[in-house]
Design a protein around this nucleic acid. Sequence first.
DNA 1: AGTAGCATTTACGTTAACGTAAAGGTCAAG
DNA 2: CTTGACCTTTACGTTAACGTAAATGCTACT
Lengths: 129, 129
Amino acid sequence: MKTIRETADLFDVSTRTIRYYEEIGLLSPARSEGNQRLYPASELVKLKLIVRGKKYGFSLEEIKEMVLLFDKDRTGRKQLERTIQYGRRRIEEVELKIQELEEMKREMEQLLVVFNSKLEKSKGDEGNE
Amino acid sequence: MKTIRETADLFDVSTRTIRYYEEIGLLSPARSEGNQRLYPASELVKLKLIVRGKKYGFSLEEIKEMVLLFDKDRTGRKQLERTIQYGRRRIEEVELKIQELEEMKREMEQLLVVFNSKLEKSKGDEGNE
DNA sequence: AGTAGCATTTACGTTAACGTAAAGGTCAAG
DNA sequence: CTTGACCTTTACGTTAACGTAAATGCTACT
């Protein structure tokens, strides 16, 4: 059970950020005798997912959907099946993002090729700059 | 030479968005006789880069750096070399993003495996729900 | 039991990336 | 040459995701 400060340092975020995530229903830490927040391992796992999700273009609202899916104890079979289905869709979205980033990378590499050939050409005429 | 509306429709963004990109120095369209914006192919290419960049987690400030690199006519050799170097770094960043997204995907798949096994278990005791 | 360094809630402030409205100019069709 | 659909600039409004400050409570150590 880590304090809010320890948790913040662990993920390199501010305590305000952590409290904000609680405000919008993403985290629900335990409390100490004196009402101070205490983060068990399960909350740390959630925070890790949040931080990573943020880093790669998901909004907190989107992340919320994802995290809440893997959060509640899904007892009913139907619920479980739905969760799995929804999870698969999310994974497909991530795959799409990866593919488009790869296309972006290829385009940028193409541009570099163009610039490189310009550079080669300019090797003939030394003397300017 | 497309008008601002045609351009907006082409990329599915608002005209305000396009004007905003001009405000912050990302686009510089031509002008008609009567002072209306006209977008040649080169500006459309830039806008495409911007839209794609946005979609995958880059801020407009970051995109600005990238776009401006491939924008001005880089005449000097030193400038050209620097541009290429900087471009390579950007590509590495994109590669990193891809890798971390792939890790994210793997983790999500792991979670699905866990849920699937839960589902299998619950297949034994039919009768609830 | 005093105090330094944490924590709490409440609430206003900030920035990026636009949205939206006002007041008016431009352009193509008829 | 007059509409109607587009365009212009100016400027204030909005939302997400926190930052920051104030007033106060808790905790660990000496």
